[in-house]
Amino acid sequence: MTNDGDRRNLITTSREIRKVRRQTISAIFNQLQGFSAHEEFSDLVQEAKEKYGITRIGVFDVDMIIWDFKNAMPIALLEVKNRHQLQESDGYAIFDEPQYTFLEDLGNYLGVPVFYVVKTRVKWLVWKVERGLAVRRKLADGRKIVLLPLDKAERYNHGEMVHRFLKRLMER
């Protein structure tokens, strides 16, 4: 049971509601513009590759870098996905092979661990990108994929991500 004071604290003015709506719309618009710029730049790189016959170049991004400011070096690289991006087949998660190979090579080059991190409805799945884990396949349409065994994924709930996985990474 609430008293009048509790109910008054829950009520916001129309002005405050409009401000929150504007901020939300602005944040969504900024994200969409960022996606648009990303896609446009990728198209420009592709156009340059085709125009000048350059085939050895690929364009990739890294979703997150955990950075150690004291030692001025990366601690870990993360490729973060959500459950809608996760495709599964016969006990495996399916990912893009060129991206996996890039992350594998980059991690080896930098000497930094790389992880695929997937947020499902109820848990986080984490794979360390390393040689020998992925099963590589070429599909009939020419696309290349990697299969990561679901039983090799570390599983964490919210608290375990903070107190086990991330704490362990940041204490390195």
Rank of each mutant, 00 (worst) to 15 (best):
Y109P: 02
A153F: 00
L44S: 15
M161Y: 00
L133A: 01
G159C: 06
G58M: 01
V129D: 04
V126P: 01
A140H: 09
A134G: 01
E39S: 14
F35H: 08
K70Y: 11
G142A: 07
G111F: 11
K123C: 03
A37K: 09
F115D: 00
L110K: 10
F165Q: 00
M170W: 03
Y92T: 08
I17G: 00
S89A: 13
N82I: 01
W67P: 05
F95P: 03
N30K: 11
P149Y: 00
G111Q: 13
K138H: 03
L110P: 05
K51E: 12
A48H: 09
L77N: 08
S36G: 02
V112N: 10
G132K: 13
L106I: 06
Q87P: 00
G34N: 02
A93F: 08
L103C: 08
A72Q: 14
D43C: 01
M161I: 02
I54C: 07
P98H: 12
K19A: 09
R83G: 13
S89L: 10
I66K: 10
K128W: 02
Y109Q: 15
R18S: 05
R172L: 05
Y52W: 13
G159V: 06
P98M: 11
L86T: 01
T13H: 02
E16Q: 14
L78W: 02
M170H: 04
V146I: 14
G5P: 03
Y116N: 06
L110R: 14
G53I: 02
D90Q: 14
T101S: 13
V118E: 05
A48L: 12
I75R: 15
R83I: 00
H38Q: 07
D6G: 03
Q46V: 01
D68E: 14
I54M: 13
S42T: 00
A76V: 12
E88W: 04
T2Y: 14
N3Q: 10
A134S: 03
Y100E: 07
L44C: 10
P74K: 14
H38W: 04
V135K: 15
V129M: 06
F165Y: 05
K128P: 00
D4M: 07
A37M: 08
Q46E: 07
L106V: 07
I66M: 12
I65D: 07
T13M: 04
D90G: 07
W127K: 02
L32S: 09
G53M: 11
G111D: 08
E79V: 03
I28F: 06
L150P: 04
V20S: 12
E50N: 08
L10I: 08
P149N: 01
K19F: 04
M64V: 06
T120W: 03
Y52G: 02
K70C: 08
A37D: 07
I28E: 11
S36Y: 00
Q85A: 14
V118T: 08
P74F: 10
N30L: 04
N30C: 00
E160G: 09
L44I: 13
G5S: 15
S89T: 13
A27M: 05
R8W: 08
Y116L: 06
V117C: 01
A93G: 15
N157D: 15
D151S: 14
L147E: 15
K123G: 00
F60W: 12
E47Q: 10
R172D: 05
V118S: 01
